[in-house]
Write a protein that binds this DNA or RNA. Structure first.
Lengths: 128, 128
DNA sequence: TATAAAACTTCCAGTAACTGGCAGGTCAAG
DNA sequence: CTTGACCTGCCAGTTACTGGAAGTTTTATA
C-alpha cells in the first residue's frame, strides 16, 4: 500500500507518515522502485500514533508506547506509569493556563477599551 | 548598563535579551567597545516583555503591545482588542486540554497497572 | 503509443522562541 | 601582567512537523 493510502487509512498526512519513517518510528517495507509499502500492521501503528499524539503524548513517549504495544509480554503497569506521568504534566499545564486565563480575563475586564490612551492592561504589563 | 545587569533588573536571561535585540524587539545603545548599553527605558521594556510573555502573548503580539505601550496617543480599545483575542485563544486551548485530560484520566483509571499484559490504554490507542 | 497528470522519492528550509556552546575580544582586580 | 569574568557574534539544536523544489515512476487518457 502506498503512502497515500496509508494516509487515508490512518488519518495522518502523507508528509507526517514519511517523517515517522525518517525518524524510525514506523518503518515500512520498500518496493523495488523505492516506494514505501505499508501493510495492515504498519497502518495500525500509524493509527495508534495518531491517537496517542492526539492525547498529547510526545514522540518520545509514543516510541515507548509503541514498543510496549508490540511487546506481547509487557506489564500493563509500565503503560499506566507512562500515562500517569503524562497526566501529571497535563494537570500542571492546565493549572498554569487557568492561572494565566484568570489574570488575563481580569485585565481585559478592567480596561474600558475606548479611544482614550489610559489602559490598565498596559499599566499592569509595565508594573515592577 | 551591561546586558548582565539588564538581565538582573528585568528578570530575563541575558541570552534572551540578546535575542530580543537580534529580532529588533528591544534594541539597546552600543558603547564604543561594541557592548550593549541598556538604560532605564530599555530595561522597562524588557520587564514589560517578561510579563507579557508570562501571560502567553506571542512575540508578534508583544511587538504590537510594545508599540502601543510607547504610543502615548494610543486608544486603549486597541490594547483591549489584542488581549481579548488572546483570551479567546487561551480559552480554546483550555477546552482542548480539559477534554484531553478527561480522556487520559479515564484511561489511566481503567488500567489495573499490574504485571499482566492486557491494558485498556493500549487497547484504546489502537482502536479504529 | 505518446504524453500528460498524478504520485512517488529525497533533501532543504522554515516554523516559535529561545538555549547552549564556541572562538575570540575586553575589562577589572590583584 | 596575568587571570578570570564578562562581552561579542555566530552556528547548531530543540519539537513535530510542513512546504516546496527537483527529479523519477506510474497511471490514465487521447
Amino acid at each position: 500500500m502506498n503512502v497515500r493510502d496509508a494516509a487515508a487509512r490512518s488519518g495522518l498526512p502523507a508528509k507526517t507518515i514519511r517523517y515517522y519513517d525518517d525518524i524510525g518510528l514506523v518503518v515500512p517495507d520498500r518496493r523495488a522502485n523505492g516506494y514505501r509499502d505499508y501493510n495492515d500492521q504498519t497502518v495500525q501503528k500509524l493509527a495508534f500514533l495518531k491517537r496517542a499524539r492526539q492525547l498529547g503524548f510526545s514522540i518520545d513517549n509514543c516510541r515507548q508506547l509503541l514498543s510496549l504495544y508490540e511487546d506481547k509480554g509487557r506489564a500493563s503497569g509500565d503503560v499506566k506509569s507512562l500515562a500517569e506521568k503524562h497526566l501529571i504534566e497535563v494537570d500542571k499545564r492546565l493549572e498554569e493556563l487557568q492561572q494565566l486565563r484568570a489574570t488575563l480575563s481580569h485585565l481585559v475586564h478592567s480596561c474600558r477599551g475606548d479611544d482614550r490612551p489610559d489602559c490598565p492592561i498596559l499599566a499592569d504589563l509595565s508594573k515592577d
